[in-house]
């Protein structure tokens, strides 16, 4: 047995447990946990039985199993990047709103200076 077929399942199990822990702490939605669990289960299956990846690859018209895995990883990474970008965008808007409101309700007068 190769090292990765032991290491990857361990990492995957830890990841699944981590997602469930976050779900129990109400930090993650059930849908997200299920999606990630499916993904990590695939990692477990492919690392123990690498030949299975070829069957999936053929389903999508891809010849090599490894190519299929790399494409899936790319898709997942791009999705994560998109989600992060969106989240960042929302946060930026919220910060802007807050900074603006603080500024608008605190016009700086010369009296402020005298108080200092």
């Amino acid at each position: 047995m190769l090292l990765y077929s032991i290491l990857f399942p361990i990492i995957s199990i830890l990841a699944i447990l981590w997602f469930f822990y976050r779900y129990l702490k109400e930090k993650q939605s059930l849908a997200t946990v299920i999606l990630w669990t499916i993904l990590w289960l695939f990692v477990i299956v492919f690392s123990i039985f690498p030949s299975y990846s070829e069957r999936f690859a053929k389903l999508f018209g891809i010849t090599r199993g490894l190519d299929f895995i790399i494409i899936v990883v790319f898709v997942v990474l791009f999705y994560i990047m998109f989600r992060l970008y969106n989240r960042l965008d929302i946060l930026q808007d919220e910060v802007n709103k807050m900074v603006k409101e603080v500024a608008l309700s605190n016009e700086i007068t010369l009296d402020d200076e005298e108080e200092e």
């Binding site: 910060v95 802007n96 603006k100 603080v102 500024a103």
Partner: peptide, 24 residues
């Protein structure tokens, strides 16, 4: 009249603040 953003948010946000402040 002076308004101050506590952190740098860019010319767009600063101008928006001015546009909002003008109604005061």
């Amino acid at each position: 009249h002076i308004f101050s953003l506590i952190i740098n948010r860019g010319v767009g946000v600063a101008t928006q603040t001015g546009f909002d402040a003008v109604f005061q």
